[in-house]
Simulated scan of single mutants.
Amino acid sequence: MTEPQPPRRGSQATRVTILLVAVLALGSIGAGAVFVAADRSARRDQAQPGGPSVAPGAVRLDAPAAGRQLVFRNMAWGPHHDEVVSVPADHPDGVRTASGLQCLRFHAAAGTGVCLQAERGALQDTYRAVVLDDRLHELRHFPVAGIPTRARVSPSGRLAAWTVFVSGDSYAGTDFSTRTSIVDTRDWNLQDNLETFAVIKDGHPYQAHDVNIWGVTFADDGTFYATLATAGQTYLVRGDLAARTLTTLHQNVECPSLSPDGTRIAYKKRVAGADADAPWRLYVLDLATMTETATAEQRSIDDQAVWSDRSTLVYALPGDFGADLWTVPADGGGTATRLLDAAVAPAFLG
């Protein structure tokens, strides 16, 4: 029988050398990965060459001394990414004044703002709705149940509304659920879920397990409009806060936006033959006659438009920085025109 031989010194030294080389190689790879990640982060935090100019400063939500302002979420790369910024409404390509406040969705009116924010966690993100005063100071905040998607403030500044995705992250299909809330900033009374309101459909009380509400737009401090979805259809509803009712008015309406004079609703409408992932076109509904007018914008709009005045709509479309703002006449004429690069969630103040 052959006796076992002791290990040779040379082979042991070779194994140690190989191990050391492997450790050093892994260390170099790790350091390189950290360097690359840091370099990418630094590049991200630098302003994009040729992009909009942004500078820190004071942003106000009350009647601005400098004239009418356009306030929105800045999408340009750099240190002010996602911050609420302002520009003169008649000079939107000017230098953006950055507030330091970051929002995923934002809207403001009459000195009140609502900011939907992400709170980054180690395991998962959470979200909240923050109600702001005219200097963007927090008045009150509320936890929300999902990903922010829509926000609105009533013309008086008294009411704020928001919609979040409780499940899903797109309106294109049917596999999603939303939660829409309204808060009164006078007494902080919160209507946490508009799905608890009584629904009147086609003149009759209606109940269904699949009712879904989103996209509030305010007429005043008692009346609002929104989208109601049920049984695979969407409807424009008129909401009564005091009576806690939602009354259907018109079919195939999503993300309504009431005109400043209260006579028309801009909205996105699903059109036959469109791509399932991009099914909408931008329309305007006359509330007195229920006559629909298609705007000149031919691309799919997945946004809740705002009215910059009585005759012009502003909305977001995908862009190089995530989103750009476009404008189109509300009467069906004219053409769509780019208003701002790297911007979303606008509000016109003053």
Rank of each mutant, 00 (worst) to 15 (best):
Pro205Gly: 09
Gly168Met: 06
Thr291Tyr: 04
Gly111Leu: 07
Gly215Arg: 01
Ala33Gln: 06
Met75His: 07
Leu159Pro: 05
Ser170Phe: 09
Lys201Gly: 11
Val71Phe: 11
Ala219Met: 12
Pro52Arg: 04
Arg186Met: 03
Glu83Pro: 07
Arg68Trp: 03
Leu116Gln: 00
Gly262Leu: 08
Ser11Phe: 07
Ser311Val: 10
Ile29Lys: 05
Leu339Gly: 04
Phe218Pro: 11
Ala37Arg: 11
Ser167Asn: 15
Leu190Met: 08
Ala342Tyr: 11
Val199Phe: 13
Ala323Trp: 00
Ala242Ile: 02
Trp307Cys: 00
Ala288Gln: 14
Gln46Ser: 14
Leu236Phe: 05
Arg128Ala: 10
Asp90Lys: 14
Gln69Ser: 14
Ala118Phe: 02
Val16Gly: 02
Trp77Ser: 00
Arg105Met: 09
Thr217Asp: 06
Phe142Arg: 02
Ile147Asp: 05
Gly332Gln: 06
Gly334Arg: 04
Trp307Ile: 14
Gln304Thr: 05
Tyr235His: 15
Asp169Tyr: 11
Gly30Ile: 15
Tyr206Glu: 06
Ser300Ile: 08
Leu249Pro: 04
Arg299Asp: 12
Tyr171His: 09
Asn212Lys: 06
Thr295Glu: 07
Ala345Pro: 03
Arg60Asp: 03
Pro148Thr: 01
Tyr315Gly: 00
Gly334Tyr: 09
Ala343Trp: 05
Leu101His: 03
Thr2Gln: 15
Pro92Lys: 13
Thr227Ser: 13
